[in-house]
Nucleic acid binder design. Structure first.
Length: 579
DNA sequence: GCCGTTTTCGGCCCGACTGTTTTCAGTCG
């Protein structure tokens, strides 16, 4: 594949090799170029086709040298410079640096001292106590590496939903275009929008299954075919994702979709209900004692025959949804694509890629009615705004808002919660902003009590409207902070603070279970893109999916409201009314 | 390697944290 994402990964790998070599500045240059390429809305192949390397070099952060490498990759699928680096340093750099706390320099040191090339060798050396003997390493580093390895291994071969979903959707439409395919549907954990995905499942209805199978196993990105029959084929793609395809008869489509979507626990529960009615339920349909078909053509028909309304896939975890459905009390989940606002966006005033106006236009294009500009504040020394700059930006946002029709811009900030729970921007300035979000970006390793008190102190501040990505976890990479979410939720309820569902694919923070906890406690939510570039507004639906998995309705999510009503329910607005 | 109300060279987001040290290197955001 030669997508922007692949190219970004490649540029990052080059940067990491240079980092390992101790080269100055170039690593940052490659990383910046990677970020810029990944942030592009159009495939970089487009400027390449239109104007070659010259036009590619107009992307900010991409100069002649990197543009040439991009062109080489687009035309040949490889970059000689990178291949040479890989030969020179025969290490699985991306794999090893995926360990939290291990960077390129560490990989280099491990290779020089012990010849470690990959995760397996590293684990062996760490377990044998060999790491602590290397200069600059001690017992603690060895333990950290082992812990990092354990965390990576917890869900081997799993991918973040946000990474898999676009690939799966593209595959779905390609299969759908085949003339032999009557119907194709994405099933499995992807349909349930689980936050990590082990494999992709497709259900196909076709009267010519062989042709479909032939096409499926001979797609260009297929790396391995595990098996291929007339109703079922399993493959692995080059990117490591396993994909299963099943061809089913038309009359079994609903039953098959239900069966292969799961979850397993949900299916078991459904089969128990079927049994209690004297029926049998399997992937071919719902049958009575004589083996006659009761239902199976559609999922709706299947659920109806079991005395249930249709249950949305995101709820199918057997966490009580079947009982609710039985009583006719299923929540009406927040629909996709209906958010009116986005309360966390960054611009090039801090670490975003685009200007305030560019972000505003992109948001408008995606049908949003308002966004808050929430750049980082000062504690993030690399990018953050101090009070003077934040104040200047506020003026600028208001100016742009006045002259921009069709979208409302709110002045905000992503304010840092300091170690003691105070904020890095004073209350007076905060009180002038429209929306204030706070979050933890430093001292991530406080103990549970201290972290909980820190966050609770911050959200008790009357100027604080929203707690952004409340647990700080990074999916498949970093555990959440040690924090008592029940207590945070209790204080959020008490103070009227909103909790965020951050839609960044490897955050999804709050997660589904926390969403449910918050809703049960009566706490209101917002779903934000945390966009750092114009293209990122597209991920909002991942946040909606997470909220749906936590049974959120539109009433629970405040940015389904139009802007004036949204602003009225912020706690500072309540404070104004009270005074 | 990129970039320029500093324009063809000389800068380049920088502070906190951790574990290793004894003054620093690596990682992270």
């Amino acid at each position: 594949m030669r997508t922007n994402r692949d190219l970004g990964k490649l540029l990052r790998e080059i940067g990491a090799f240079l980092e390992m070599e101790g080269v100055a500045f170039k690593p940052r240059a490659y990383e910046k170029a990677a970020i810029a390429i990944e942030a592009m809305e159009e495939p970089v192949a487009t400027p390449h086709q239109k104007g070659g390397a010259k036009l590619v070099a107009t992307v900010p952060g991409v100069g002649k040298s990197i543009a040439d490498k991009i062109v080489e990759f687009l035309e040949t699928g490889r970059v000689d410079y990178l291949e040479a680096k890989r030969r020179e340093h025969p290490v699985d750099l991306l794999g090893l640096t995926a360990i939290e706390g291990v960077g390129a320099k560490t990989v280099g040191a491990l290779y020089d001292a012990l010849g470690i090339q990959n995760l397996a060798a590293l684990e062996e050396a760490a377990k044998a106590g060999k790491i602590r003997g290397i200069k600059g390493f001690g017992e603690k580093s060895e333990q950290e590496i082992l812990q990092g390895l354990e965390f990576l291994k917890k869900e081997p071969g799993r991918f973040p939903l946000g990474e898999v979903l676009p690939i799966a959707k593209a595959l779905e439409s390609r299969l759908g275009e085949l003339s032999q395919v009557d119907k194709v549907t994405l099933a499995g954990s992807i349909l349930r929008r689980k936050e990590t995905i082990g494999d992709a499942d497709f259900i196909v209805v076709s009267s010519h299954p062989d042709a479909v199978m032939d096409f499926f196993v001979s797609m260009p990105e297929v790396a391995h075919v595990y098996g291929k029959g007339s109703t079922k084929a399993n493959i692995r793609l080059e990117n490591g994702l396993d994909v299963d395809l099943r061809v089913v008869p038309k009359q079994s489509y609903g039953a098959a979709l239900n069966y292969f979507t799961g979850s397993k626990a949900h299916n078991v529960h459904l089969r128990r209900i079927a049994q209690s009615k004297g029926y049998k339920l399997n992937e071919y349909g719902l049958f009575d004692k004589n083996g006659d078909v009761i239902a199976g053509r559609t999922e709706k028909e299947l659920y109806a025959a079991l005395g249930l309304p249709f249950i949305p896939p995101e709820m199918r975890e057997d966490r009580g949804e079947i009982e609710l459905a039985y009583d006719g009390k299923l929540p009406k989940l927040i629909p996709y694509g209906k958010l009116k606002g986005d309360l966390q966006t960054q611009t090039n005033w801090s670490d975003g890629q685009h200007s305030i106006e560019e972000m505003a236009r992109a948001a408008m294009k995606r049908g949003l009615e308002y966004i808050a500009i929430t750049d980082h504040t000062i504690e993030l020394a690399m990018t953050g705004l101090d009070e003077r700059r934040l104040s200047e930006q506020m003026t600028e946002i208001r100016k742009i808002d006045r002259r921009t029709k069709g979208i409302r811009l709110l002045a905000g900030a992503e304010v840092n919660i300091l170690k003691d729970g105070s904020l890095d921007i004073g209350d007076e300035l905060l009180s002038k902003l429209d929306v204030v979000g706070v979050t933890v970006h430093s001292n991530l390793h406080l103990d549970r009590k201290e972290m909980t008190e820190r966050i609770c102190r911050a959200i008790r501040n009357p100027q604080v409207d929203i707690l952004f990505h409340p647990t700080g976890r990074v999916i498949l990479k970093r555990e959440p902070y040690q924090v008592d979410m029940e207590e945070v939720i209790r204080v959020a309820k008490e103070t009227g603070t909103l909790l965020e569902v951050d839609a960044i694919p490897d955050r999804l923070d709050l997660n589904d279970e926390h969403v449910k906890m918050a809703i049960d406690a009566g706490v209101k939510l917002v779903i934000d893109s945390d966009a750092h570039a114009t293209a990122h507004f597209d991920i909002l639906d991942l946040g909606v999916a997470t909220a749906r998995r936590g049974w959120a309705t539109s009433k629970d999510v405040m940015n389904t409201l139009p802007v004036e009503r949204f602003l009225k329910q912020l706690k500072r607005s309540h404070a104004h009314r009270a005074s």
